[in-house]
Computed example of a mutant assay.
Amino acid sequence: MTVETLSFEQTVPRTLAHRRCLGEVFVADTTALGPAEFLAAIQIPRAHSHWSDRIAAYHDPLAAVEAIRQAMTVIGHRYLRVPLGTPMSLQRMETDVEDHSALREDGSAPLEGIVRIHAPQTGGTGGYFADNTFTASLTIGAALAMVVRGSGIAFPREAYEQFRRHQQQTRPADPDAEIAARGPVQPARIGRRNPRNVVVGRPDTRQGSALVLPLVVDQRHPSFFDHTYDHLPGPLILEGFRQAAVLAACEIGALATPVAAVAAIHATFTGFAELNVDADFVATVLPDGGGGAVVELDLSQFGTTIATCTVELAPYPPD
Rank of each mutant, 00 (worst) to 15 (best):
T305P: 03
P258E: 07
P317T: 05
P184L: 02
V199S: 00
P318Q: 05
Q301I: 09
V12K: 09
T304C: 01
V65S: 11
T310K: 11
A245C: 06
I140Y: 13
G291S: 13
G85Y: 15
R149E: 15
P175Q: 13
G201E: 05
L236I: 09
R165Y: 11
V65N: 01
P35L: 06
V259D: 08
M88N: 03
N132D: 13
T270Q: 13
I75Y: 02
I55Q: 09
T268D: 10
T30D: 04
G303C: 13
G253P: 06
A64S: 10
I265M: 15
R54L: 10
G107Q: 09
G271L: 05
I75T: 05
T11Q: 10
D288E: 13
N197K: 03
V74F: 09
A64Q: 05
P233H: 12
L90S: 00
T15N: 03
P83F: 06
Q162R: 14
A181Q: 11
L299T: 00
T284I: 08
S300D: 11
S209W: 10
V199H: 02
P318G: 11
V216H: 00
M93P: 02
Q207G: 12
V311K: 00
G191F: 03
A57D: 13
D176K: 09
N276H: 13
C309L: 04
P287N: 00
F155Q: 02
D96S: 11
I265N: 03
V212N: 01
G34Q: 06
A102G: 03
P222F: 10
Q207H: 14
T139F: 09
V82W: 03
F163E: 14
G127T: 02
H77W: 02
D106Y: 12
V295K: 01
A173Y: 15
E4N: 13
F163G: 06
S89H: 07
P317Q: 10
D29M: 14
L16I: 11
L232W: 11
I190T: 07
T15M: 04
A143P: 07
L286D: 02
A119T: 00
H100W: 15
R192Q: 02
E105N: 07
D53E: 07
A244N: 03
H50T: 10
E112I: 04
V3K: 08
I55A: 12
R69P: 02
A260V: 04
V212A: 06
V262L: 08
F26H: 13
I153L: 12
I190E: 00
A273T: 08
A64K: 00
V82R: 03
F269N: 00
L236P: 07
L90A: 08
F272S: 01
Q167G: 06
E9Y: 03
F38T: 01
L103M: 09
F281L: 06
R164F: 10
I117W: 00
E251K: 09
R220P: 03
Q10T: 08
P110A: 15
D230C: 06
A264M: 09
P120A: 12
G240M: 01
R104D: 14
H227I: 01
S52R: 09
Y160C: 05
P187Y: 12
